[in-house]
Amino acid sequence: MKILTPEEAIKNNAYKNALTELLYQLADDDFILSYRGSEWLGLAPHIEEDVAFSSINQDTMGHAAMFYQLLENLGEGKMDGLAHNRPANRWRNACLLEKVNGTGHYLNEPKYDWAFAVCRHYFYTSFKKIRMESLKTSSYQPLADAAVRVSIELFYHQLHWKTWFQQLMLAGGEAKTRMEKAIQTVCNDFGGVLGLGSLGESMVTFSLIDSEETIKNRWNCLMESIFEGVSSSLPETLGSMNGDGRNGVHTQDLEAALKTLSEVYQLDPTATW
């Protein structure tokens, strides 16, 4: 079964609900992580890297915009409203991706953690690549098309973060200690990234995406080979310590982020900016 247009998709209520839920997960994941990335701008460990990192954040926000566009086409409202005018409990991103970059605020004593940035981005990009592969055969054709386009840019993201991950892991000493701590932090919440939320079964039944189990196994396989290469191993358990973002449970970090990112928009949501 292939659904080719949004008009077709909204005819079946159950299908539409599963689809929009999935799209919110995709859009919100990319948007909030690229927002966190944008806070890093100007603060990276090295000027050349600052520039490279920003391109990845722009790409990722571009992907979020593609998914918000699909939601807009399904009648969910204007994409800028979706990104700037929703209460936290309506966000479907994983809690790991909303987590602050470190202590402080981007304008005030930002003691950001590069090890966490590398691990979070590397783990997420690896997962995103697998997720996009799965979406390429999604029953919703506009989503399958978007997945093909998004995948193109993930080669670079993957290469970039893998290089940083391997080098810092192999550097030993303080770097390795910091990296291992960051890996643990990421894994504490990575279960939340892999989850599909309460409509997960329906998404799978409607052939929108592969099951949580399938994607998790593929991701585990990929990570195991990477960890072998750096003589380390992936922690046994992947949790969702800070909440189940897929079902709208979020942290204070998201609340604060939404306030910042919509500060100007909220001055006048009806104005043209």
Binding site: Q58, A64, Y68, W273
Partner: peptide, 29 residues
């Protein structure tokens, strides 16, 4: 300008100002 990067009022503005400030870092480079 970076102060306004996370706060830019639309997706398009967020992307535009990110690219602009990135260029400035690139000019520094």
């Amino acid at each position: 300008e970076k102060e306004w990067v996370p706060k830019a009022p639309s997706l398009k503005r967020k992307l535009g100002i990110m690219a602009k400030v990135q260029d400035e870092m690139g000019h520094g480079q």
